[in-house]
């Protein structure tokens, strides 16, 4: 074990104090050190988007950030959205529109789309497709994901 660094990270509102090797990827830290398994790892080179999380509110790839860099920052993962019995409106729309199959890419899509819908409460189909271009889904062909985002946007703007 080489040198480790103490870090203090707020994840989903909870403060975690840990010692990490500088090379530890944030994705591995969240999954294996904190047990937040909802963040998935699909490529570890920043293309697939399965590991997307919110870093100080910004959707980023957790496989392209070191855990040590999260020191003092605020992270949100899919676990911060809804629970199985109380889904977030976007999660509910994904379920209603059959926007997921194997579910492996889904948390990355959700974490990309939550801030997107905040910034684009009434998105066009083209805007939605561009927003999720950095998330690969092998199962759905994306059409039902687009429908789910439209559905969620309608629900969320009605709720306001």
């Amino acid at each position: 074990m080489s040198q480790t660094f103490p870090i203090s990270v707020t994840v989903n509102g909870k403060v975690y104090n840990r010692e990490v090797e500088p090379r530890l990827l944030l994705s591995d830290f969240l999954r294996h050190d904190l047990g937040l398994i909802g963040t998935h790892v699909g490529c570890e080179h920043g293309i697939c988007g399965a590991c997307t999380i919110l870093f100080d509110g910004e959707p980023v790839r957790s496989c392209l950030i070191f855990a040590v860099q999260a020191n003092g920052h605020e992270i949100r993962t899919v676990e911060s959205l809804g629970t199985p019995d109380h889904l977030h409106p976007l999660q509910q729309s994904f379920k209603d529109k059959h926007a997921l199959q194997c579910g492996f890419c889904t948390p990355g899509f959700l974490m990309t789309l939550v801030p997107f819908l905040e910034e684009h409460p009434n998105p066009s189909e083209d805007e939605i497709r561009e927003a999720i271009d950095g998330n690969i889904c092998r199962c759905t062909g994306y059409e039902k994901i687009v429908e789910a985002v439209e559905d969620a946007a309608a629900k969320l703007s009605q709720a306001k």
């Binding site: 909802g38 963040t39 809804g82 629970t83 994904f94 379920k95 059959h98 997921l100 579910g103 948390p107």
Partner: peptide
């Protein structure tokens, strides 16, 4: 609607 979705959507499905 799929019965498995609520686990997959919330990070509660174990791979």
């Amino acid at each position: 609607k799929r019965l498995e979705d609520k686990y997959l959507l919330t990070g509660n499905a174990r791979y």
